[in-house]
Design a protein around this nucleic acid. Structure first.
Length: 258
DNA sequence: ATGGCTGCCGGAGGCAGA
């Protein structure tokens, strides 16, 4: 089963790129972040005509996530059930595709350490961990958590770590939130044989020549329970897609599990 | 030290992203 995740920075602005990419990449389950699209304007046909079932959020012009699957899309949950403001934004979709419970997320950005937005981000991660655990993980349900985490978990996930130490996206509390998520029984999906020292940037600032000079960040991640992680054949960042004219500032993640 | 970008909404320019 091929599972992908891509922060597209507007599903409408990127639609023709997305359609080309879908036809070339042929994901079975594909997760989207920053769709930036109210439900009534979502280009559903691009997915349904290719045989995908679709679940989307209705988040107005900002944020937004979606899942499209051609291997089943059951028990869909939008956002974190039972959450209350300000943690009830539609930042996640959970769905069962084939035998895997897939949670796709678009984490709050946090903006700046110490702000209300930053505190909400930390609280949101805490709630997400509890939800994922309750939603089958603790009972051995095959589980994947994938998307834009807006956290660079390790120093090597930033192109020049010393410049950004203890800032938003790299702060100790955010890294602890990521670590606590793993503590619920999840492991990071990585290429065969690679360890955490291998950089896999997934985001490059649009300004200037940051992509061309590979001044990027690793903010998009895929986690799974150990049994599902052992089914991983490959995981890659599709950097070619980040090099196209009119592309998103994030590259897609592509992973294959047997 | 993200600044030099981009999209959204709405119909200009402020907000947001990471």
């Amino acid at each position: 089963m091929r599972i992908t995740s891509w922060n597209v920075d507007s599903v409408r602005a990127r639609l023709s790129l997305i359609e080309d990419w879908l036809d070339r990449t042929q994901p079975d389950v594909t997760c989207w972040q920053e769709t930036k699209c109210p439900a009534r304007r979502f280009p559903r046909h691009a997915f349904t005509q290719r045989g995908y079932e679709l679940a989307i959020t209705d988040a107005g012009g900002h944020g937004g996530v979606a899942i499209a699957s051609r291997v089943g899309l059951a028990d869909v949950e939008i956002g974190i059930p039972g959450s209350k403001a300000p943690l009830n934004e539609q930042r996640s979709i959970s769905a069962t595709c084939q035998d895997v419970r897939i949670h796709t997320i678009y984490a709050p950005n946090g903006r700046k350490v110490g702000t209300r937005h930053y505190e909400i981000k930390l609280a949101w991660f805490s709630l997400l961990g509890a939800w994922v655990q309750m939603d089958g993980l603790s009972e051995g349900q095959p589980t994947v958590v994938i998307g834009d985490f807006n956290i660079a978990p390790y120093d090597h996930d930033v192109w020049e770590p010393h410049r950004y130490r203890k800032r938003n996206l790299t702060s100790p509390a955010e890294r602890e939130a990521f670590s606590q998520l793993l503590g619920h029984g999840l492991t990071e999906l990585r290429s065969n044989g690679s360890d955490v020292t291998e950089p896999h940037f997934t985001w490059w600032n649009r300004r200037s020549d940051f992509f061309e000079t590979d001044r990027g960040w690793r903010l998009d991640h895929a986690l799974a329970d150990p049994a599902t992680a052992s089914r991983l054949d490959s995981i890659n960042v599709d950097r070619d897609e980040r090099s196209r004219d009119g592309c998103s500032d994030h590259a897609p993640l592509i992973l294959d599990v047997s």
